[in-house]
Design a protein around this nucleic acid. Structure first.
Length: 273
DNA sequence: ATAGCAACCTGAGGGC
DNA sequence: TGCCCTCAGGTTGCTA
């Protein structure tokens, strides 16, 4: 489900609902998601404490609580919803926080690629977060950085962009869309981009991510914000999921290929190698 | 070090 | 209706 704009949409929606709210109880409804759930740590550290903040690093949501931090990743199919009152559990509800004010935060994740983690260290030191690349919307993600980082890399620029050690938050949708806007072929070796290409690409990534956040993210089938509402950026997609259709710019037929199990669509006319 | 791919898992949709 | 296959927004960890 979520790439960076979707996680940011969730974060923005949840922050005012959760910050300063005192936790009454926590419920873990299975032992594992992508990793084991820290059942004991959650039970020991959450009740009686308040959520101090709701921030984000890449696609991870970070919630400092008392002496540690809750880290949540939504994987492919995770949905984090806030309910004003308790409601019955449904299939794939794995995790719930009950607040003193009667509201609930609940994680539903059919595929269970998501994660609920607890750390008593600064969350950015967590092994899963420590090696992440820069945030795409911050100044340290720029053309110079991308240019230097990509020297000598022979793999396609699309998979390079999707490497979270290069930059976080560019998933399959936004990597493809950014390359379309920048007019760069997804299979072009990353090391072959020149400075100008890197400038165009960085600008495209920032522009698209911001535009999508503005529209509440992309809902393909099951993305919902904290309130259960879909996002509207899918109406702005130019190539993702449009293989075989006409390019909106030049009317050529959008091509699609598979690599590493991921489909990538591009316009052979606008995105020449 | 890097690149490619299987693996983790459920559900939806298409073909027969 | 049902079975079988393919595909899906992510990420790790294995193999060359």
């Amino acid at each position: 489900m979520p790439e960076l704009p979707e996680v940011e949409t969730i974060r923005r929606g949840l922050a005012p609902l959760l910050i300063k709210q005192e936790i009454k109880a926590v419920t873990t409804r299975r032992e594992n998601l992508r990793w084991p759930m820290p059942i004991k740590e959650l039970a020991d550290n959450l009740p009686g404490h308040t959520i101090d903040d709701v921030s984000r690093r890449g696609k991870y949501l970070l919630m400092p609580i008392g002496r540690g931090s809750l880290i949540v990743h939504l994987g492919m199919s995770g949905v984090l919803r806030h309910h004003k009152k308790n409601i019955p559990y449904v299939k794939h509800d794995h995790f719930d926080i009950a607040f003193k004010n009667g509201s609930h935060l609940r994680l539903n994740d059919p595929r269970r690629f998501g994660a609920v983690l607890w750390t008593s260290e600064p969350p950015l030191n967590h092994p899963l977060l420590a090696k992440l690349g820069p945030e795409p919307l911050l100044a340290d993600f720029n053309a110079d950085y991308l240019y230097e980082k990509s020297r000598g890399r022979k793999g396609g620029i699309k998979s390079f962009l999707m490497d979270s050690q290069v930059v976080v938050g560019a998933g399959n949708i936004y990597a493809a869309e950014s390359l379309f806007i920048a007019k760069i072929n997804p299979l072009r070796p990353a090391g072959k981009l020149d400075k100008k290409d890197c400038e165009k690409l960085v600008a495209a990534i920032k522009k698209i991510l911001l535009a999508s956040i503005e529209l509440g993210g992309t809902t393909l089938k099951d993305f919902r914000n904290e309130d259960g509402k879909p996002g509207y950026f899918q109406q702005s997609l130019n190539v993702y999921g449009r293989g075989g259709e006409e390019c909106v710019v030049c009317a050529a037929t959008i091509e699609q290929y598979r690599s590493g199990g991921r489909a990538t669509a591009f316009c052979p006319q606008c995105q020449k190698k």
